[in-house]
Amino acid sequence: MVTRPVVEVSDLRHAYADGTSALRGVSFQVGDGERLAIVGANGAGKSTTLLHLAGCLLPQAGSVRIAGLPLCRDTLAPLRRCVGLLFQNPDDQLFMPRVFDDVAFGPLNLGLPADEVRTRVMHALAVVGATHLAQRQPHRLSGGEKRAVTIAAVLSMSPTILLLDEPTAALDPRSRRQLIELLQTLGQTIIVATHDLDLVLDLCPRTLVLGEGSVIADGASGIILRDEALLAAAHLEKPLRLQSCPVCRGVSGQAASGCHSSNRV
């Protein structure tokens, strides 16, 4: 399944300054072009893992290798170039006065020439379908538009790995659907930390379950998301689409799984 691992995490440990330990030995590998979901309860260590992969935190123990390079202070600059992190709250990420400026922020920091930057920005905006927003101010965008623009801002750096922290949080159903469709078209390796298990079902063939800072399960989403005992242990619930439909059950009297919705995994 794993072709050539672009992300290798082994026995990663992390404790915050106040002593709470967030990660207690997490290990996993992600192959090139793979889409992995990291799920788990609040405080299970999802965000902390993503922050490590993005180089915002450095391993206190254990190691993180991205595209073969070990994550440490010296390799931060090249590693950040191939990893794009999307924050849960788009407002934290859209700090420039206009959408164009924000998408251009990364490429300009790379020191690219102006024309190249412009091409990259317009290309990235086109990919997420936000070309018309280029001259808008971030605070005038809707939640869905903000999300699309943050993706463009990350794509303009042409990363090979995308890290998404709760990408569907606070999105209305239609924006959420559009986001999922957009993510499905991207070719990058994608790692999503989320509570939205229906999103996982649609986007990620593989799921990693974290509980209290360690890996509880790692495997095909179709299997893991049906394992009610495992999900309950991780403070999660079976995705709605996989739950038995109360209407159908009322008619047929049997707890048929997936009567209205197909299991697309």
Partner: peptide, 13 residues
């Protein structure tokens, strides 16, 4: 702090 991280991730200097 989060904004700073977001900036750093995109090469802020």
């Amino acid at each position: 702090q989060r904004i700073y991280l977001a900036m750093k991730c995109r090469g802020f200097d």
